[in-house]
Design a binder for these strands. Structure first.
Lengths: 222, 222
DNA sequence: AGAACAAACTATTGATCGTTAGTTTTCGAG
DNA sequence: CTCGAAAACTAACGATCAATAGTTTGTTCT
């Protein structure tokens, strides 16, 4: 073991944080990937420990239980997404910003962690027991603001007020579904959603979807 | 509904089929509901047996393993959906039928078994190991026909040929996502996707989505 | 009614699950 | 360099998993 003085390039990790704290994040990384792929029940602590390169009981030095680890993964992953959403959807910027900016920002933050939407989908499918207490205070105002944003456009001319929530949900499903179906597409067509070109193509598509469904100017239907 | 023999109302089940065959279907029903809610790993044979009202080893009289039961659930559930899809998307009816008919038929068959999309979503998220061999010969031509159907409309004027597949996928995600998020909406808003009114509203919304995104007549953009 | 078979049962298997107790190693501060 | 704490380890726990063997019950056909 060479602990160099101050010279050559060394694969050493940044020694800024205490050791335990860094392994805690490595555990979170491993757990995030495994939970996203196999879900909560399908992920064993053995799989997590193996991926980290550690024995199972060591996990308990950082997280009290499998459930606590899962909650930590969910919270660490969701926080930046919620931040971006609530920032972009701030009430003061409602009219001024165009809806396309929201699409680009959301896609950008999700592209950095493409496993997150799959994690959320697993939670959604199994009832969202862990998701509900965390999102109850967030998703409601966010949904309301997205609703207002859509209502502020002349889209109500063609959509009718009661259909706006469905429109918002539809956008959610298209965005999340893109990441959800990624592993299958990767196997069938060979497209990796981590590929920047694929992300950009989808983002462009979503922008056009927004323009078509929520046009800035009323349609010229004679 | 009931094909009664000729006599009084009796709680007895139809004695047409041999007994084992009927319990096999009861097992499939129970397994379908449980797999859709908790996924493969999250569903235990004990839960299935309890729901059927039978001991665990009895399941093995009808299905060779948990995996075989899962495959049987998937196949029995997917068959009618594939049938409707491939029938509606038959090449000869490409131009004549309007795309809205496809939406209505798909929503109708899914509304009868709202757990199916969730089952497929679980499979999709976990890699679709059981899904791929079953759908490989089906999803490819279906996707190709949906692609042709979209290309046959004047939609390419506004969408560009390379975006049509994304459009088809987007429709898939909106349809499936509606059933996926149902349990959460049921908890948050109290809407049950089994409610006929909710289904009809979503179907109407989807028809309008089709009309807006794939208009029959070229848009009058001056 | 009785033989033959299907389908339920009881009991138990080895493997693996999440979790805990107790011990040793490693790290960081004085 | 040393000491104390943090974090790794070994070993084992009870519970539960899917699956099997052997037996009993029930149904169906002649």
């Amino acid at each position: 073991m060479s602990l160099a003085s101050a010279s050559a390039a060394r694969p050493a990790p940044p020694r800024r944080t205490p050791k335990g704290e860094r392994t805690a994040e490595r555990i979170l990384d491993a757990a995030e990937a495994l939970f996203a792929e196999h879900g909560y029940a399908g992920t064993t602590l053995r799989a997590v420990a193996d991926r980290v390169g550690v024995r199972i009981p060591s996990l308990y030095n950082h997280f009290a239980s499998k459930d606590a680890l899962y909650a930590a993964v969910l919270e660490r992953g969701l926080a930046p997404v919620i931040a971006v959403l609530s920032d972009t959807l701030e009430p003061e910027g409602l009219g001024s910003r165009d809806s396309g900016e929201l699409v680009e920002r959301v896609m950008a933050v999700l592209a950095e962690r493409p496993e997150l939407p799959r994690l959320v989908q697993h939670e959604t499918l199994t009832g969202g027991q862990h998701l509900t207490p965390m999102l109850r205070s967030w998703v409601t105002p966010l949904f309301a603001r997205a609703h207002d944003l859509a209502m502020a456009t002349p889209a109500t001319r063609r959509w009718g007020p009661e259909q706006i929530p469905l429109l918002v949900l539809a956008f959610y499903h298209v965005v999340v579904g893109f990441f959800t179906i990624a592993p299958l597409l990767h196997e069938w067509v060979g497209e990796d959603p981590r590929d920047e070109a694929v992300i950009e193509r989808q983002t462009r598509f979503l922008r056009q979807l927004v323009e078509t469904l929520l046009p800035d100017e009323p349609p010229a239907d004679a």
